[in-house]
Design a protein around this nucleic acid. Structure first.
Lengths: 190, 190
DNA sequence: CACGGTTGGCTAATACAATTAGCTTTAAAG
DNA sequence: CTTTAAAGCTAATTGTATTAGCCAACCGTG
């Protein structure tokens, strides 16, 4: 019985990869154990339980998304930054639908919860984008929520195959970015 | 053993109500059976299985949402209609988070699937709203997806308690509606 | 190099949710 | 009345999460 050389990070990474393959709702402890070459109960040496696994996958996904968006935004501003952030975010969700699905519905237990920390980092990246628009500081939170809602909604709908007609999804996404850009550019003029 | 007087609609309605109370992910056949005063296996006389139950709850939720939005939009146009539709939609999701959650992730089996029919009705209501804006007919699908994404995203984030800071959620929602309105009004000018 | 404790793995057992099989009774139609 | 389909029940099966308790492998220390 040679050791498998696992640790919590390896288990979480494998769980995230598996979720991307089979869908988050089909991610099962038995399947994950098989994937990492171990019997099911052994997983509990590395993670507390399935909820713990889910939260760690969610935190990983948010961290990766924040990195992707943060990198994409570097050196850009205004509409350019918005488009880059949007594309990076959606590319991530499309490439990793399973781990992103883990992030919807997790309630952080407190401000120190890794999920909350990673989520804040992602929001910070979007906040940086909004600085390129003349948004009233009092309304920054509202703008952030609006942009986040739009991107989150689009990504989850696409990941759930909720767009049924023939119109090109990429084109629709560009259209959404333009819509937000137009709205944001005018956000102080009324 | 007197009859409980159940039928599929009653079971689905009870399931939707229960999902709103305990959360969709906690909706269980045993819990539902207890709620309607019957043993678990008896539910299968009215619904095929849990997936069937979920789909019926989703179709119910979409129908109710379509009714709410359709009614709210009556006799309104432009920004007025957009705001009314948005409010009706969000009020519904906030009041019935469990049954709305049942709608995310269902893939209609075909155009005749009740889920698809109800979903189309909801989209039709939003399409009516967009007619109040001078959107290029070629881009109507894109506009529809954009508006849908924004409202769906906001509603699901709120239902998942994903908005953590202090800023007022209602105000944020109004801000989102304004943002979309500004963007849509300019949608033909570029 | 031995050795002892911590760690990571295993088997066995438990609990619970979904589902199926097969029996029984209600109640509605003739 | 009687007949019959529908609606309920108990019992049994399966699959998943989780816990208990045992054993072996690795790591450092003498």
């Amino acid at each position: 019985m040679p050791r498998a050389g696992l640790d919590p990070n390896a288990v979480v990474a494998a769980g995230a990869a598996l979720a991307d393959e089979v869908g988050f709702s089909c991610l099962t402890m038995g399947l994950l154990a098989e994937r990492v070459g171990v019997r099911t109960p052994s997983l509990y040496k590395h993670i507390a339980n399935q909820d713990d696994l889910n939260r760690r996958i969610a935190a990983l996904a948010l961290t990766e998304a924040a990195d992707a968006v943060g990198t994409a935004v570097q050196g850009r501003a205004g509409r350019d930054a918005l488009a880059a952030a949007a594309r990076a975010f959606r590319d991530f969700v499309v490439a990793h639908p399973g781990r992103y699905a883990a992030t919807v519905g997790v309630e952080p237990t407190g401000p120190d919860d890794p999920v909350a920390v990673a989520g804040s980092r992602l929001l910070d990246s979007f906040t940086a984008v909004l600085r390129g628009y003349a948004v009233d500081p009092d309304q920054l939170d509202h703008a952030l929520r609006a942009v986040r809602s739009a991107f989150h909604g689009f990504a989850t709908l696409q990941a759930g195959r909720a767009f049924q007609w023939s119109a090109d999804v990429d084109e629709s996404f560009e259209w959404l970015v333009d819509l937000l850009d137009r709205g944001l550019r005018q956000s102080t003029s009324d």
